[in-house]
């Protein structure tokens, strides 16, 4: 009964939407024109980066908060007190030496790619998120190759790294608010401020995304 209702509802939704989408008048507001006009004042040359970090930078600020929050929730859910770190050691098969060698070779390259993506973001597709994702992938690769242990509970340095990018962003927001509007960059410093925010975010995003994986794999041994 429930199955039938849900499937019926989903089909109805699709039919209605496809019908309604078919003959749609052109949109009355054309934001891509507004973005193009204001691009020179944004401090970056790539329109998507300009929207992400300048025109709608506030969205991005809150979105980093969401990501950091997810990590904190995973920490807060916690593990069973009975599972000690020692109990999880030595249950895995022997490490593949080929994988380890490959990981050692590839990871420096990945870091290089991340730096390139960060730098490229201002004038072509790229930016902090892409760079952070590559960094996180490097960490995951290292973990899978047994070169990087999973996290138990992050120490103070790690917490600083995790929240640092967000705090830099927040600080820029607070300073700009005191001088005018939230995240309003002075014209000549816009490019530098965006680069500062993006550099901080790259490190923190890489750590957070890696953390989401490394924290989830922390109690690996006892369930498998």
């Amino acid at each position: 009964m429930k199955r039938l209702l849900v499937v019926l509802g989903a089909v109805c939704l699709v039919v209605l939407l496809l019908g309604a989408m078919h003959d749609l008048a052109p949109a009355s507001v054309e934001l891509h024109a507004a973005v193009a006009t204001n691009l020179t004042a944004s401090g970056v040359e790539h329109p998507v980066t300009a929207v992400l970090l300048n025109f709608r930078g506030y969205d991005t600020l809150l979105e980093i908060a969401v990501l950091l929050l997810a990590l904190i929730v995973i920490l807060a859910i916690g593990m069973d007190a009975t599972i000690s770190a020692e109990a999880t050691v030595d249950v895995r098969p022997l490490v593949n030496p080929v994988l380890q060698t490959l990981a050692k070779l590839v990871v420096p390259l990945m870091i290089l790619v991340a730096v390139y993506l960060l730098w490229a973001g201002s004038f072509r597709p790229g930016g902090a998120f892409q760079a952070g994702a590559v960094l996180a992938a490097a960490a995951v690769l290292l973990h899978l190759a047994e070169l990087l242990p999973s996290w138990q509970s992050p120490g103070v340095k790690l917490r600083l790294g995790l929240a640092g990018g967000f705090l830099i962003f927040l600080a820029v927001g607070a300073v700009s608010l005191m001088q005018g509007a939230l995240l309003e960059y002075p014209l000549e410093q816009a490019g530098a401020l965006i680069l500062l925010i993006e550099s901080g975010l790259t490190v923190s995003l890489g750590l957070i995304l890696a953390g989401l994986f490394l924290l989830l794999s922390r109690d690996d041994g006892e369930t498998s």
Partner: peptide, 13 residues
């Protein structure tokens, strides 16, 4: 009202 980033809607928030 506060226009975030000083842009104002619809370009900004």
């Amino acid at each position: 009202m506060h226009a975030v980033g000083g842009w104002g809607a619809p370009l900004g928030i």
